[in-house]
Structure formats: C-alpha cells, structure tokens
Nucleic acid binder design. Sequence first.
DNA 1: GCTGAAACGACCCGGCT
DNA 2: AGCCGGGTCGTTTCAGC
Lengths: 159, 159
Amino acid sequence: MSESVVLDPVDLDILRLLQNDARTTYRDLAAEVGVAASTCLDRVARLRRAGVILGHQLRLDPAKLGRGLQALLMVQVRPHRRELVGPFVERIRALPESRSVFHLTGPDDYLVHVAVSDTADLQRLVLDEFTSRREVARVETRLIFQQWDCGPLLPPAAG
Amino acid sequence: MSESVVLDPVDLDILRLLQNDARTTYRDLAAEVGVAASTCLDRVARLRRAGVILGHQLRLDPAKLGRGLQALLMVQVRPHRRELVGPFVERIRALPESRSVFHLTGPDDYLVHVAVSDTADLQRLVLDEFTSRREVARVETRLIFQQWDCGPLLPPAAG
DNA sequence: GCTGAAACGACCCGGCT
DNA sequence: AGCCGGGTCGTTTCAGC
C-alpha cells in the first residue's frame, strides 16, 4: 500500500511548488520547473495515481470561525481493545470540535487536537464527550499557545 | 487580528464543500449551494480577504515519500525564555522531518510532529537535533500508530 | 446577486526525440 | 517512454443590469 515511489527532481520541484500553493497553474508550474505545461499535467496525474498526492485541502483559520481556543487532549482508553477503541475513535472524529486524532505509543493511547470557542466550551467538551465515557480512563488537557506549520514534506535528501 | 467574521448559510455551504475537495469548480459549487457561479467567486474572494481561508494546500502521503514513520516529540526547553525559544522553534521548523510545532501549557513546552524513514532515522533526529542542544532539557518520543483527520472545521452550531 | 461574453487555463492528441 | 505544441472545451472572471 505505501510502497515508496520513484521521484525525479522535476517531480520534487512540482510537489514543492504545489505545497506552497496548490492552485498554481500548470503554465506557471511549467515555467518554474523547466518543462512544458502538458508534461506538468502528466506528472501531477501520475503522482495522483501513485497515491503521493492525496488531495487538495482548504486551510481555514479556526479563530475566524469562532473557535479561537485550541487544545490537545491526551486520552487513556481502558480496556484498550479493538471493540472499544474503534467506536471511540469514530465518535471523537465525528465531533465538530475535533481536528485530528492520533493513536500513539506510550502511557496515553490517543491524542486529540480540538478547536473550541473558549475555556467553558472546552470544559463542556471534556466533561460531556470524554470523561463521561466509561472507556475513557483519563484525560489530560494541554492548551495550545501557538502553532507553526513547517516546510514542505519531501523525501530524504539521499533520494 | 482574529476577529470573528459574519458567515451566512451560503458561506458555510461553500466552506463545507471546499473542505471536501478544494478543486471543486465554482460552477459545481454554484449548483450545490443555489447561487450563481460569479457569486461563489465573490464569496470565496471575500472569505480569502477576511482571512477565513488561509490557502490551498496539497495533501501528500508521507509514506510514499520515504517517510513511513511518524512520531510526536514532547520537548522541555529550559530556561523557557524568549531569546532561547524563538531560535529553537525556528531551527525545529527548518528541519525537513518536521511537520508542525505546538507551544503548549503543561510540563512539556513544545510538541513536535515529525515524519522520518525509520527508527534509526528517528534516533538520529532526536539525538542530533534535540537532546544535543543545551536548551533542550528533556525529550519524550511517542510513535504514531495511526492518524485520522476529522470533519470540516466549521463554526459552532448556534451561529 | 444575476447574466452573458471574453479571457484564460486545463486537458486531450498526434507527432517528435 | 516520455516530452512537447497546438486545438478544443470548460472554467473563471468582469462589466453591466
């Protein structure tokens, strides 16, 4: 499923540029990477088919949508068995406050990134949707002061 | 900076659809939400100007790029002063392995989401880029088994 | 906010290296 | 095979209503 794909420098340039702005036209792309526009089209289609490109996503500002407070919830689910954690994850994913969910190694089984209106909203979320659940053994809440996104995700230098 | 913006049901529908596929054409968008294509264009431009829409991003599969292992690093930076943490964050952001960085409340000051090739690569990253730094007091590494993205980020129901 | 028309970009195809 | 160039068609975009 996740076999590595052979990517030449042109592919990497294309990905690098599209990571900055996924709406860059093939014409501009072509001018930057030094091939014809139609070739860019072919390359992108190939990367899409190969599963390297998963999709185009809109990045929104949570604060502008009335969700100015973000937090990470570290959750222990006990007992940690498939028939319990499957429904748990699906319930959490369906919450409008959830942004992403991680299943982790370590003492905390899950980490949930949430965006809420304020601390009262956060308290409600934690109490009603997490600690009230029988399978949730423990929740630790960490507020997010600030978040940074990092440079484009690209393969190791060695190729 | 992050004042809330007035969004009517048409704006919300547009955001909801674009979150699913940011490449939906204005023509299709218009048909779905029940306004003219040019109106959709105006709405999106307005949402962009208002800062609700931050940008269009390509979602890539880290595994396909030779980064099949992801982890969260919880980092204590001591002393936790501006002149130390500013450069620390910038250095971490510049690493090709970094995906995002969070400044948090709680015992761990920073959480860093990284994507690496394998455990050897992760060990190298932790030893060379984190624990070897004087300002890094402690690093706790949690592997990511699985990650889920959640539904579209939208305002609280009350509107 | 809609309509229609002009400009623009995406995309397909046939030939070329 | 992969790359290019042009032609066609759909989309975006803007002026006027």
